[in-house]
Design a protein around this nucleic acid. Sequence first.
DNA 1: CGACTTACTTAGACTGCCTAAGTAAATTTT
DNA 2: AAAATTTACTTAGGCAGTCTAAGTAAGTCG
Lengths: 172, 172
Amino acid sequence: MTADDGIAELAHRLRPLVFRLYYVVRRETPQYQLTLTQGSVLAALVLDGPQRMSALAEREGVRTPSMTDVVGRLERLGLVRRGPDPTDGRAVIASATEEGRRLIDELVRAREEFLRARLARLDDADRAAITAALPAFERLAGVGGTPAPDQAATTDAITNAGDDANEEETDH
Amino acid sequence: MTADDGIAELAHRLRPLVFRLYYVVRRETPQYQLTLTQGSVLAALVLDGPQRMSALAEREGVRTPSMTDVVGRLERLGLVRRGPDPTDGRAVIASATEEGRRLIDELVRAREEFLRARLARLDDADRAAITAALPAFERLAGVGGTPAPDQAATTDAITNAGDDANEEETDH
DNA sequence: CGACTTACTTAGACTGCCTAAGTAAATTTT
DNA sequence: AAAATTTACTTAGGCAGTCTAAGTAAGTCG
């Protein structure tokens, strides 16, 4: 009982923090001309290599028609290329161009630099506490619920730091 | 030098974590029929009371015309009400209805419950580490950059947990 | 009182997402 | 092997969110 109450209390304190941290990083990091979705998809291609449209869609949690649009726009921007899948005539494989790769590199760098600057403002004790808690947070964020693919949210995480503005959903 | 390298390394490890945690909570918590934006705005009204359109817009990081739309939709959904500002004839004050309030309560509860379940899966040592690091994270997430209003991201944080799908930006 | 500023809405356009439907290729059935 | 089914992606139509530009109403200042 007592233990559980403690956990609930911890959840209560943690909830706002999760969103606030995300929000701050997102708002204070430049977007390099990409929307959140575009950044997330591009990052997936840069970090994990060429992938099928359907794989990208599933990974981003959207339907394939939506991915068709996104990849189409990235293609027009010169950041992504479409190509055939030698093993399956129906499939289309998307891959990042050199320019796309460069953009993601910059984006990741910018986010880390922002966090570095923030961390530098804390004192050693705070940094030590954060460092000590990292493994625990990694387990917390781990794809625990279902025996998940553990990769799903990773790349998304790398890029989803755009404006707040576009964060919409269409679920109704 | 050495110290700074350590901070950079910490930032490197922290970056993906920030986004992954956010992503996980967002994807795994039900939305109660609200889009991310709607939820964020409604939460702001529920938690901090009636506010002007312009205040809401600034807080959400969008322009006022966008907020006009969002509040308009929330109003049609019966979750928000528009009213005059007795002190300024130009202004419009939006406030949550009872139904809106109820919805946000459920939403917050759901998110905390999700986190609680996740936390319950960790061992005591992990929970202790997270608890110990909370104050440091709060300072890290604090509106440090500019002498900010410290409230800005808070409510946003409460609701922004929808799908990933709608996360768009319009910045170009 | 007239000029300027401020608060919000309207108008037009882009991106993202979805469902439904269509095309093409691979697989399964018979 | 031809037909039926399934799979991968695109197209079409529609909604939500955002933006800039422009318009209206109200407050402020000289």
